[in-house]
Computed example of a mutant assay.
Amino acid sequence: MYVPPEWPSEVRTPDIPDWETSAVAWLLDAVPPDYRAYEVLRRHPYALARMAGHHVRASIEAARAGYRGAAVELKGHLPPHAVEAVLEVYRREGPRLVQLARSIEAVERALRGEGFTATLRRRP
């Protein structure tokens, strides 16, 4: 079965029986640990995927805001090399979170029952 490149390797493909179990485990790793306490999210993986998507998109916005303000907010409280190290954390986390959001979106689509189709892309 074709799945898009953003499909997480930890999640079995939708053509495998009970693949949703691996999706739930992976999605729970993408949200705060307290989400594990809600049985409804395990019973309804689509709801968990929606919540995970909202959470990660909010984290992306928070990381962007943090990056924009870090140099000013941290100046005078940290040495310059530490400020630069914090900015580097934001530069690495941003792309990781964006990729995570794309992966969550792919899993959510599959949980809705949507299929995936491979497409050929033209080279520029």
Rank of each mutant, 00 (worst) to 15 (best):
R109G: 11
R36S: 06
A62N: 09
V3A: 14
D18F: 13
T117H: 10
R68Y: 07
S22Y: 10
L100Q: 14
G69L: 13
E93D: 11
E20T: 15
A52W: 05
L97T: 00
D15L: 12
M51R: 14
E20M: 15
E39Y: 04
V11C: 10
E39I: 03
R92H: 11
S22C: 07
A101E: 10
P95T: 04
P95N: 06
H55F: 05
T21W: 12
R102E: 08
A62W: 05
I104K: 02
L100C: 08
K75H: 10
A82K: 15
S9W: 08
H54L: 11
H77Y: 14
P33T: 01
R122P: 02
P79W: 07
H55R: 04
V107L: 02
V40H: 08
R68S: 11
M1C: 15
P33A: 06
E73V: 07
R64C: 05
E108T: 01
A101W: 05
L48W: 00
L111A: 03
A62H: 08
V72H: 13
I60W: 07
A52L: 06
L41D: 00
A47Y: 05
P5S: 12
E93Q: 12
P33M: 06
T119K: 12
G113F: 02
A70I: 08
L74N: 13
A52H: 01
P4G: 12
R92W: 05
V11Q: 14
E6Y: 08
D34V: 07
A63D: 09
A106P: 04
R112M: 07
S9T: 13
P4E: 12
V56D: 00
Y90H: 14
P33L: 04
G115K: 10
R42M: 03
R96F: 04
V3N: 12
V31F: 00
E105S: 09
H55Y: 09
A23K: 00
V83Q: 02
L78N: 09
G66E: 07
M1I: 10
S22V: 09
P14M: 00
R102Q: 13
P33K: 11
R12H: 14
E20K: 15
V83M: 02
K75P: 03
P8N: 12
E10H: 14
I104G: 00
D34Y: 13
G76R: 14
V3C: 14
Y46A: 08
E93P: 03
V3Y: 13
E10R: 15
P79V: 12
H55P: 00
P5K: 15
R68W: 07
P95E: 08
L87K: 15
